[in-house]
Amino acid sequence: MMKARLLVIDDEAMVRDSMVAYLEDSGYQVDAVDSGQAGLVVLEQQQIDLVLCDLRMPNLDGLEVLQQVKERTDNIPVIVVSGAGVMDDVVQALRLGASDYLVKPILDMAMLEHSVQRNLALVALEKQNQQYRDHLESVNRELRNGLDELRSDQQAGRQVQMKMLPEFVEQQGLSFKHIIKPSLMLSGDFLDYFPLDDEHFGFYIADVSGHGASSAFVTVLLKNLTYRLKRNLKRGSSDDLYHPVKVLQRINEELLDTECGKHLTIVYGVLNTKTLKFNYSIGAHFPMPILYSEGKAQYLEGRGMPVGLFRDAEYQNYAMQMPEKFTLSMFSDGVLELLKLPSLAHKEEYLLNLIEKEAGNHESIVSALAIESDTDVPDDIALMTLVRI
């Protein structure tokens, strides 16, 4: 990778030559001139990444050079070099936009290189941040346009959303099934499951706040993010999908950046199909997944903050060894609305008893909860069942 191109402006040949020699030895391309006028000419003719400029020079001094550089562009950092007796000029230079200052004579050239590296890194970071903001603005525009289309054609939107859901899977000794029933035409509940490699499966169930098109819009964002993470995994540029905490952090950041006013709860897990080690993270999801094995059902442990509400949200990784044969049932909280019981504790107990009674069987649970009935429901309902076969 080519190093940055620097411009050294100093009327003292010894100082100028020593800086040029050191910076060239450090791998930089360096142009050097002995006057402010000559420096401005170079800036017109060459693509310069950083300027080192003496403050005290005849005719056009460093302050004037700095002012003209900043009038032309604010993207080139200018490091001013001054003698110890001209600190007033240094203060004025910093007010005019100088990025740093060094005092002559420069006894330790490593300080010079450090200042150059730091200021070039800041410029690169600002450029990356601007590109990221531009990218987010572009994505936001596309998503808002998509949301408008969904609102104008709810039926077409539902068909698109259903197509985003995975097909039932029997692979790597696992069986995945699911059902989603929206309270409106479009659902704020979403789920997905996918192989990461020959020994790992990733899966999640999510519940977006609210109902309808605006919540369904977030499920599109969620699907898009997991698609990009899978693409990055295939390219070898990121392995975030293996790490539940990183996945929740990415979703949290991107959801906040959209400024859509939506948040979600989620459980994301990764199962090693050979060792049966299971890692998962919780984003305030409720009810917790239910593990059924050897005739007994139990809720998994875990807790965490909602996703998309707090910039500084922290999530925890939970790890457990799964039994040889098991069923894992994951619900959205809409299922609790179906249960006409006096308290939340009674509803949680009912779900445990139902899983035990039906031995975790997906179709039997769907039937017992009447999820496929034509009756309108007050909240979106999602159920995903994972069976080790």
Rank of each mutant, 00 (worst) to 15 (best):
K127M: 09
D100H: 10
R133L: 12
E167M: 11
E142N: 15
P182N: 00
F203K: 03
T327C: 14
E199M: 11
H243R: 14
K70H: 13
M57L: 14
D34W: 00
F278E: 03
P342K: 11
T275Y: 07
D88P: 02
Y227P: 00
E301P: 00
I48F: 07
I371H: 05
V245H: 08
T73P: 06
E199G: 08
A313C: 08
K262G: 03
V91N: 11
L40P: 03
L383H: 15
M322S: 07
T265L: 05
V208A: 05
L225C: 08
G308I: 02
M109T: 06
A84G: 08
L96S: 02
Q47F: 03
K163P: 00
L276H: 15
I48D: 03
L40H: 06
Y268Q: 13
I371K: 07
E324N: 12
D192P: 00
E337D: 14
Y193Q: 10
A370I: 05
G236M: 07
V42N: 00
N272S: 09
T273W: 00
I365M: 15
V377R: 10
P182E: 00
M162K: 13
Q117M: 14
R231N: 14
A156H: 04
K347S: 11
L339H: 05
E12C: 07
V208T: 01
G157Y: 04
L136T: 13
G360N: 03
L150N: 05
Y315R: 07
K357D: 10
P244E: 09
M322P: 01
V30W: 02
L383G: 05
G236I: 02
A98V: 01
N129F: 04
Q46L: 05
L125P: 00
K234D: 13
A368D: 14
D197G: 07
M330F: 06
L191D: 04
V90H: 12
L6A: 09
D333Y: 11
L344M: 11
A121Y: 12
Q47W: 02
C53V: 01
T273H: 01
V69T: 05
L55C: 09
V33N: 01
D192I: 01
M162G: 04
H211P: 03
R56S: 10
L50H: 09
K274L: 11
D239K: 13
V335E: 02
E254P: 00
P166A: 05
A216V: 06
L43H: 02
I251T: 05
V30K: 03
N140V: 08
V307H: 04
P244W: 09
Q154I: 08
V90S: 12
D197Q: 09
K177R: 15
E149H: 05
V169P: 00
D197P: 01
L122V: 03
G304P: 01
Q161Y: 06
V80Q: 14
C260N: 11
K262Y: 06
R311L: 13
S26H: 02
L255E: 02
